[in-house]
Every structure is written in C-alpha cells, then in structure tokens.
Amino acid sequence: MPEQMMTARALKAAVSHGNGLLEKLLDALQADVTERLLSQATLHDVDVGETLIERSVRSESVGYVLDGTLAMVQVLEDGKKHIVGLLVPTDIFGRLFDGTANYRIEALSAARILCFPRAFFEQVLRDNPEAERLFLVHLLDEVDAAREWLLLMSGRKAVNRLASFLSILLRRSKSKRIGGQAVVHVPLSRKDLAHYLGARPETLSRAFHELEGKGILRIIDPGHFEVLDKQALIDASGDDLTLDD
C-alpha cells in the first residue's frame, strides 16, 4: 500500500467532495486543530484484494475512503469468507478507543485511502466534544448499516437479495449517470457476488436478467448496471418479484 504525503490544504480539498463524516469533523474543529490533524494524514493507493486491517489485530491507524469500495469480511474456521458490510467513499474505518478489529477490511476494487494515526485521532476526539458527538452518531449509523445488511441477506429469493444489494450500492456509492439514469458499479466478479449473496452463479445471472426483463435495470457489462426504475428496484427487494432457484 504505497504511501503519499500531501499538504494539509490538498488533503482538505480531497475530503471535501461529499457530506461525509470526516468533512463534518473538520468543520467542527478549530482551524489550528484541523491543520494539525491533516498534517498527520497520509494518502494510500490500495490494490484489489489487499488487506488493510486483519481481524483480531489492533489497528494503529484510522482510514477514510476517498475512492473505491472496501469490504468488511468475516473468515470462518473452514476458510469461507462472508461480507458483513461495505465501505464506500466518505466512510471511516478502524476501531477506536478500545479493542481489536472484529473483521478483516479488504479492497473489493482499487481504492484510495486517507489514513490518520489512531492515537492522535482519538486525542482530537477527546479534546473536542462536538467532534466526538459526530463520531458517536457515526457509530449509530454503522449499527443501522449492519441491520440493513442482515435485511439484505434475509431475502427469500436470489432476485430479492440482488435487488437489495444493488439498492444499497446505489444509495451509498457515487454513481455515474447515462442520460440522467444512475449507473451502479458492482466491484465483485459474478462468481464472488453469487457466493456472497448465497446463490449459484447461474441463478444470479437469471436474477440480473429478470430485473432487466422487468425494465428495472439495463446490463451494460458484467460490472455496470443502469438503473431505469429506482423505486421498482427497491420494491424488488421484497416479494414483488419471484424467481425459482
């Protein structure tokens, strides 16, 4: 994971592209504290499949996703991996204040990460109550995201789980547009996505074509999908569409 140094001004410009937690934290801090925090930051380019934090290891840094998609992964005793959440631009990761990581963080796509020393970041939060409050709100958002992921995996049919997955990506990712329609990028191979959604690859392929046949999305290529009807995609995460496995 190559490390790059940037000026505080350049780093602040890099994080000011959305309504993310780090941007809110920086706005809540005094100017001199912001400068000191950013002076400790380093920029990293991450390759596909690279592990950023290992499970049960105490991370010495806090990461902020600038670009790309990361996965929170649980590895079972038999070696099988299960994604328990996604990290997209403006998300922060790295356990603060206590304990080790409960899951592995690995890159699903090439990514760019901003990293801060954990101890210094913790001290900034302790010294600035408003910033600490924002971070606690962020933790509550993480709990909501975990519940959302459980809901995704509870879908009875593969098409329900796929529609939920695409809806989450559409809402949480920076989507490109074609003629006014949002385009979702899925940073997983069809085989890996089928595994993570608990379906066979051929069943998942039929689910994509079912959604396309209903006029909900258009398959551009194996990793990009134009969403033609956002509400119908959300509805498809329930039992409105059926597809026999």
Score class of each variant (00 low, 15 high):
residue 173 S to N: 11
residue 128 N to T: 05
residue 64 Y to K: 00
residue 110 A to Q: 15
residue 92 I to Q: 09
residue 9 R to M: 01
residue 4 Q to H: 12
residue 176 K to R: 15
residue 198 G to A: 05
residue 109 S to F: 06
residue 215 G to I: 09
residue 133 R to P: 00
residue 67 D to N: 15
residue 29 L to I: 01
residue 54 E to F: 09
residue 115 C to S: 15
residue 19 N to E: 14
residue 244 D to C: 00
residue 155 G to A: 05
residue 32 D to H: 11
residue 10 A to H: 04
residue 83 I to Q: 05
residue 83 I to G: 05
residue 73 V to M: 08
residue 197 L to Y: 04
residue 230 K to Y: 06
residue 160 N to C: 07
residue 181 Q to D: 14
residue 90 T to C: 08
residue 96 L to S: 08
residue 66 L to W: 01
residue 5 M to I: 13
residue 133 R to D: 03
residue 223 G to R: 12
residue 53 I to W: 02
residue 28 A to C: 07
residue 184 V to E: 04
residue 101 A to W: 06
residue 131 A to H: 03
residue 69 T to D: 09
residue 73 V to Q: 04
residue 156 R to C: 00
residue 157 K to R: 12
residue 75 V to K: 13
residue 222 P to S: 05
residue 125 L to M: 07
residue 60 E to H: 15
residue 156 R to F: 02
residue 211 L to C: 04
residue 32 D to L: 06
residue 159 V to F: 04
residue 18 G to M: 02
residue 161 R to N: 03
residue 157 K to M: 12
residue 154 S to A: 14
residue 60 E to M: 12
residue 220 I to V: 11
residue 46 V to E: 10
residue 204 L to M: 06
residue 165 F to E: 02
residue 57 V to L: 12
residue 171 R to Q: 15
residue 74 Q to F: 14
residue 213 G to D: 07
residue 131 A to I: 02
residue 235 D to F: 08
residue 192 D to G: 00
residue 43 L to W: 09
residue 30 Q to A: 14
residue 101 A to L: 04
residue 175 S to Q: 12
residue 40 Q to W: 01
